[in-house]
């Protein structure tokens, strides 16, 4: 049974000796990211409350960290790193493109409905 694992993460910056070690390494990384998220969520630093591209900087950080976590769960726990590029692309790109499209459409429309309410065409403040 052939089952070689690719043992480098961070583009080869860190290379583990065995698959088990890599698992613990990834756990350490995921826990660290979660702790950073929770600490930021509790403190809510004033400096990160500014708006970047229509959303608070802090929220951008949360979303980016989430995607980083999702990447390591998929690549190392679900062994996407060890699958063929064809399978990887079929799964990841399909999901990413469809989700981005769906999210764009719904958030755009949500913002539109908010502005309809906000401009006073519909009264809600009672």
């Amino acid at each position: 049974m052939a089952h070689e694992h690719k043992l480098e993460i961070f583009k080869g910056l860190v290379k583990f000796k065995s698959n088990t070690q890599k698992i613990w390494g990834v756990l350490a990384l995921l826990s660290f990211i979660t702790i950073v998220e929770v600490v930021l969520g509790i403190i809510k630093p004033e400096s990160l409350m500014g708006y970047v591209f229509g959303m608070k900087a802090l929220n951008w950080i949360f979303i980016i960290l989430t995607i980083v976590k999702a990447y390591y769960i998929t690549w190392d726990f679900m062994h996407m790193r060890d699958e063929t590029p064809g399978l990887r692309r079929a799964v990841v790109w399909t999901a990413i493109f469809l989700i981005l499209y769906l999210v764009f459409i719904l958030l755009q429309e949500g913002g539109y409905v908010f502005r309809v309410y906000d401009n006073g065409y519909i009264k809600r403040d009672f």
């Binding site: 989700i99 999210v103 719904l106 429309e109 949500g110 913002g111 409905v113 908010f114």
Partner: peptide, 9 residues
């Protein structure tokens, strides 16, 4: 995404 829609609303 539906949650996001309602939240943006």
């Amino acid at each position: 995404a539906a949650y996001g829609f309602s939240r943006f609303k």
